[in-house]
């Protein structure tokens, strides 16, 4: 999906990686997706007091197909788990996940029959944020951590990286 699937091997990628990562980290579009209490604090980050637009992440998209970031804000129940995975699958690469709050990270205080003990059982998580609920500032911090992570990313380490075949490999 991303540029990494079209790059031929052998050319010096560092500069291109730098540019692409710079663009990616400054335009992370989250999917509008709230599960429980933490979603309220997520909304606060987009209000004027904290203004998530300073990080280029204010474009909350209701459709996962237009989003890069899934902020799992709230408790993932067993009834909802399928849908959470479906939303993640519908997002195009490159995509990242923030587990916002204790419930999303580990199930939190809800160790019960209908709660998935951590969203990382369903989708890969990039940044975990502790708190019940975490303050909205913590989400901005998580976003900055994610930006750091993106800026260090190599094309070859991305899951959608498709290495083009070398001439001698082609028969």
């Amino acid at each position: 999906m991303g540029i990494e699937s079209r790059i031929p091997p052998g050319i010096l990628l560092t500069t291109l990686e730098g540019i692409v990562n710079w663009a990616r980290k400054n335009s992370i579009w989250p999917v509008t997706f709230g599960l429980a209490c933490c979603a309220l604090e997520m909304m606060v980050t987009s209000s004027s007091a904290l203004d998530i637009a300073r990080f280029g992440a204010e474009v909350f998209r209701p459709s996962p197909r237009q989003a890069d970031l899934m902020i799992v804000a709230g408790t993932v129940t067993k009834k909802m788990a399928y849908m959470v995975r479906r939303i993640y699958d519908q997002m195009p690469e490159p995509k990242w996940v923030i587990a916002y709050g204790t419930c999303a990270s580990s199930g939190g205080i809800f160790r019960t029959y209908n709660v998935v003990q951590g969203v990382d059982q369903i989708v890969p998580v990039d940044v975990y944020v502790p708190g019940c609920p975490p303050r909205p500032e913590a989400l901005l911090d998580a976003l900055m951590k994610l930006q750091e992570k993106i800026s260090r990313e190599r094309f070859s380490s991305r899951p959608d990286y498709v290495r083009a075949l070398r001439p001698e490999e082609i028969r």
């Binding site: 709230g74 129940t77 009834k79 909802m80 809800f110 019960t112 209908n114």
Partner: peptide
């Protein structure tokens, strides 16, 4: 309903 059923009454 029930997509956020966390079992509060049981817990």
């Amino acid at each position: 309903l029930g997509h956020l059923h966390r079992g509060v009454e049981k817990l």
